Amino acid sequence: MRRIFAFTLLSLCIAGSLHAADATDAARKLAQDAIIVDTHIDAPENLESKWNDLGILVPEREFDYPRAREGGLDVAWMSIYTSAEEDDKGTAWQIANSQIDHVEALVERHPDKFALLRSPQDVDKLRAGNKVLLPLGMENGAPIGDDLSKLKFFFDRGVRYITLAHGGNNRIADSSYQATGKWGGLSPFGEQVVKEMNRLGIIVDVSHISDDAVRDVLRITDVPVIASHSGMRHFTPEFNRNMPDDIAKAVAKEGGVIQLAFGTAFLDRNQARETAERRQTLEKMKQEGKSEAEMDAYSKAFSAAHPAPVMHTDAVLDQIDYAVKLVGIDHVGIGSDFDGVDGELPVELKSVADYPNLVAGLQARGYKEADIRKILGGNLLRVWTEIEKRAEH
């Protein structure tokens, strides 16, 4: 069993989001012993806007090394995020490479704390010495432009999943956030992208894309897919960003896994509706030629008028329960979206220190240890291993 880090009371007070009292000793022990894999943490985007040394405690962020070790996090997928606006401006390629540079710099700065992870076969070897492993997931396929060869370029840089689209329809696929699709699912180029990702061993991530696009992916892919950070639409019927039951079952049928997010917009029907409303208004303002300053002002005013609800771990546990009953224990995992939801998170799940609180909740609901280990990371590693084995080398 790995050594459990002992943190001082001062560190706990500074961090603010360490809810050690909410987790039992048994939950903390299992969180340290299990392999925890979180498939979506937005640290690179924040490093791009402001460099923080995540090897030390950074209270204003939700991911850093001390709290990752406190929470038992082993594999933290770094999200290489580019927006639809950056795609339109032609800057997505540069920004993606810059964010990868930041992650590499973090590892070079702290080789005793972090390691880049490019294969599931290396997890046990690289996490020795209490290292936190950092695989790369690209959130939005925009950086590849219309050049299929750039998939190999990013694979060589360490990218191991790609979320095909984000907030807007792109060259590859329609976005779940758009009321009107451009392609009716995947584009012809998008079909080639999926096939090439299969060939290379890059995981296809269906979070953020439209229902029709997911159906197209499942029709074309030769290997399982994942949803890196999604919720269940059963709880948020008007929020197309979350996954409906029929598609969740289809993803599971093909061997894939649904990684459930912690952000309150994924969990609460009213906030999900408001999030969709804000996005629709911003899209309309963009089409009307409003300035970025005007759009920022609207967004801030909307957020102030519609504060996020106070929610607790039970809301995430309810999603897990529902997903497990729907698709089976082998097809559910976690993709928190830490550092990507502006702190709009359940009270007991405010940072990477807090996975033991989730474990405690699962234990209280009667999940067996073996099944908790699957949810925490075993399912994702199984899928990644299968995709890697079936890739052409």
Rank of each mutant, 00 (worst) to 15 (best):
R2P: 10
F5S: 10
H19L: 15
A23E: 01
T24H: 07
A27D: 01
L30A: 01
I36G: 01
V37T: 07
V37W: 07
A43N: 03
A43F: 03
L47H: 04
L47K: 05
S49A: 04
V58H: 07
R61F: 02
D74P: 14
A76N: 01
A76K: 00
M78K: 06
E85N: 15
D88P: 08
H102D: 07
V107S: 03
H110V: 03
H110G: 05
H110K: 06
L116T: 09
L117V: 02
D122L: 13
L126G: 13
G129N: 12
G129T: 11
N130L: 11
N130S: 10
K131F: 13
V132E: 08
L133D: 04
P135W: 02
P135G: 06
L136Q: 14
E139Q: 15
I144N: 07
G145N: 04
D146A: 14
L151A: 05
F154D: 08
V159R: 08
T163C: 11
A165E: 07
A165N: 10
N170M: 03
R171M: 12
S175M: 05
F189I: 02
I202Q: 02
S207T: 04
I209H: 03
I220T: 04
T221I: 08
H229L: 01
H229D: 00
S230N: 12
M232L: 08
F235I: 08
P237W: 13
E238L: 09
F239N: 05
N242Q: 11
N242M: 05
D246T: 10
K249A: 06
A250N: 06
T264C: 13
Q271K: 15
A272D: 00
A272P: 02
R279Y: 13
Q280C: 09
L282K: 13
E288D: 09
K290H: 11
E292K: 09
E294V: 11
M295G: 07
A297D: 10
K300T: 09
A301Q: 15
F302K: 00
F302Y: 02
H306I: 10
P307M: 03
V310P: 11
T313Y: 12
L317M: 04
L317T: 02
I320L: 06
G328K: 09
H331N: 14
G333P: 09
I334S: 06
S336F: 11
S336T: 15
V341N: 08
E344R: 15
L345Y: 10
E348T: 05
V352D: 08
A353D: 08
A353E: 05
P356R: 01
N357D: 00
L358P: 04
L358Y: 01
V359S: 01
I372F: 01
N379Y: 03
W384D: 00
K389E: 07
R390I: 09
R390K: 13
H393V: 12
